[in-house]
């Protein structure tokens, strides 16, 4: 067992974990933060994306022990302090960027990371950035629209509707 200490959504947490405990499992089973989903075993689907020290990572492909000392942010930490949806989350609702909701936490975390790096991404940049997040429901149309809208661009015009 290894002792890990990290900050998750602004709260300090500390626990003894096995070496093999993945960050995704630590969040879900250890902390009850089940918004982070696990959709594959090969680091492809992106449902488990969280931010570690401000960067998007696949939490199913990082050991909890390797996140010792890190600042971790999950989907549960994305809402505004008053509980309302943040700009990215609200854009997903406004533009119907989700259906079953399973890929959504990872999609939101990746989109937020993109916007932090690139506040006004083009459609092509968004599509390229989201290649590590698989959605089976939306055909991606409304996800890309939502990210355009969250960046303050005219999503409807850019989606040529």
């Amino acid at each position: 067992m290894t002792k890990v200490t990290m900050t998750v959504n602004g709260k300090a947490v500390s626990a003894e974990v096995e070496g093999r405990t993945l960050l995704s499992a630590f969040l879900r089973e250890g902390l009850g933060l089940t918004g982070t989903h696990v959709g594959c075993d090969t680091s492809q689907c992106g449902a488990c994306v969280v931010h570690v020290d401000g960067k998007a990572v696949k939490s199913c492909t990082m050991f909890a022990a390797d996140a010792d000392g890190a600042q971790v942010k999950t989907i549960e930490g994305m809402n505004n302090p008053d509980g309302s949806l943040s700009v990215v989350q609200q854009a997903f609702q406004d533009h119907h960027g989700l259906q079953c909701g399973f890929c959504t936490p990872g999609m939101v975390m990746s989109s937020a990371a993109l916007l932090a790096e690139n506040p006004k991404p083009t459609e092509a940049e968004i599509r390229h950035y989201l290649e590590g997040n698989i959605c089976r429901c939306t055909g991606y149309h409304n996800i890309v629209k939502a990210v355009l809208a969250a960046s303050g661009q005219d999503a409807a015009a850019l989606a040529a509707e």
Binding site: V49, A56, V57, K58, M62, L114, G132
Partner: peptide, 9 residues
Amino acid sequence: IGDPAVRNR
């Protein structure tokens, strides 16, 4: 390489 999350690790 890979995707942004993979590139971050």
